[in-house]
Design a protein around this nucleic acid. Structure first.
Length: 326
DNA sequence: TAGGCCATCTGGTCCT
DNA sequence: AGGACCAGATGGCCTA
C-alpha cells in the first residue's frame, strides 16, 4: 500500500495509548494485537494489553474503583514484578504512586508495586513513542520514502540510508563549491570554497562544469527529490546520471550515486501485485518504480551498485536486509 | 513455516 | 529519589 500512512495504520508504531486503551476496555477485549499491543510480556503469557499512558487521574480513578487497566481478561495484565502475579484485579489500591515510590520496594504492597510498574512502563512506552515519531520524521525527509509503491523503511534502513544521504549531500555541496569557484575564476567573493584544494578533481564533474545543465543536474544527485514531480526528478536524475554515474566522488571514494543508494534489500515491496519496486528481485539493475508508475531512469536504478566502503552500508554488511530484496 | 520487524515489558545503570 | 536510557526477553504481525 502506501509508504507511510497506511503502513503506520496497519501496524502503528506507537499506538495512541490512551485511545486504544479506552477503546479496548470499552470493548472488553483486546485489540487482537493488531493495535500494536503485541502484549507479550515477558513471562506471563497472558496477552497483557496493559494500559498505556494512563493519565494520572484515570489511573487514580481506576485505582479507586479497584479496576486495573488490562485486567480485561481476568488474567493479570502485568505480572507483578515481585513474583506473585495472581490477582490482577488488584484490590483497591488507592495508594498513590508518588507515595509508594518513596518506600522501599520491599515494603511496597503488591498494588503499589503494580502502580509503580505501570508508571514506569508508561514512561518507557512514551519514550519509544517519541523515538518512533522522530524516526518517522527522518523517513519523511529521506528520498525513497515517499513513493506509493515503496514500503515504509525499517528503522535500521532509515538510519543507514540517512547516513549515506548525509554523506552524499556533503559531497555534493563540496563539489558545488568547487565548481562555482572554477566557473567564477577560482577564489572569489562569497564562494571561496573551503574545499578547494582539499578535493581532487574528478573528470566527470569537470565535464559537468563544462555543461551547466549537467552540472546542475549533478548537484541534484540522482535522488528522487521529494518535492520535484516525478518527471522533473527523472529528468534531473537522468542528466545527473550522465554526469555523475561513473564518478566516484573524490576524497572519499564514495560514489555520488551509490552513496545514497540504499541496498535494495532495505526497501520492501508493499505487495506482490505492485511491479517490484525494488527492481528485479536480486537487486540487479531492475527498474525501480519509485513512484509507482514509470520505470525509474535514474542512475541508482541503472547502474549496478558500486562497492563503496565509506558508508559501511554495503549490502554485504547487511545480509539480512539484503535478503529482503528477494 | 521461518525469518524479519516491531511493540511492549522489565530490570539494571547512569544522570540530574 | 526519580527519570532517562539501555538491552534482553517475549510474543504478535507480515511476507516470502
Amino acid at each position: 500500500m502506501d509508504s507511510d500512512a497506511s503502513l503506520v495504520s496497519s501496524r502503528p508504531s506507537s499506538p495512541e495509548t490512551d485511545d486504544i486503551f479506552l477503546t479496548t476496555r470499552s470493548k472488553g477485549s483486546s485489540s487482537g494485537g493488531g493495535g500494536g499491543f503485541s502484549g507479550g510480556t515477558v513471562s506471563s503469557s497472558t496477552p497483557n494489553d496493559c494500559q498505556p499512558e494512563l493519565s494520572a487521574e484515570l489511573r487514580n480513578a481506576m485505582g479507586a474503583a479497584g479496576v486495573h487497566p488490562g485486567d480485561k481478561l481476568g488474567g493479570g495484565c502485568f505480572k507483578s514484578s515481585s513474583s506473585t502475579t495472581s490477582s490482577s484485579s488488584s484490590t483497591s489500591s488507592s495508594s498513590s504512586v508518588a507515595s509508594s515510590t518513596k518506600k522501599d520496594k520491599k515494603q511496597m504492597t503488591e498494588p503499589e508495586l503494580q502502580q509503580l510498574r505501570l508508571k514506569i512502563n508508561s514512561r518507557e512506552r512514551k519514550r519509544m513513542h517519541d523515538l518512533n515519531i522522530a524516526m518517522d520524521g527522518l523517513r519523511e525527509v529521506m528520498p525513497y520514502a515517499h513513493g506509493p509503491s515503496v514500503r515504509k523503511l525499517s528503522k535500521i534502513a532509515t538510519l543507514l540510508l540517512a547516513r549515506n544521504y548525509i554523506l552524499m549531500l556533503t559531497n555534493s555541496l563540496e563539489e558545488m563549491k568547487r565548481l562555482v569557484s572554477e566557473i567564477y575564476g577560482g577564489h572569489h567573493a562569497g564562494f571561496h570554497p573551503s574545499a578547494c584544494g582539499s578535493l581532487a578533481h574528478s573528470a566527470p564533474l569537470q565535464a559537468a562544469a563544462a555543461h551547466p545543465a549537467a552540472a546542475h543536474a549533478s548537484h541534484h544527485p540522482a535522488v528522487h527529490h521529494p518535492i520535484l514531480p516525478p518527471a522533473a526528478a527523472a529528468a534531473a536524475a537522468a542528466a545527473a546520471a550522465a554526469a555523475v554515474s561513473s564518478a566516484s566522488l573524490p576524497g572519499s571514494g564514495l560514489s555520488a550515486v551509490s552513496s545514497i543508494r540504499p541496498p535494495h534489500g532495505l526497501l520492501k515491496s508493499p505487495s506482490a501485485s505492485v511491479a517490484t519496486p525494488l527492481g528485479s528481485g536480486g537487486g540487479g539493475g531492475g527498474s525501480f518504480q519509485h513512484w509507482g508508475g514509470m520505470p525509474c531512469p535514474c542512475s541508482m536504478c541503472q547502474v549496478p551498485p558500486p562497492h563503496h566502503h565509506v558508508s559501511g552500508m554495503s549490502t554485504t554488511s547487511l545480509p539480512r536486509l539484503t535478503s529482503d530484496a528477494k
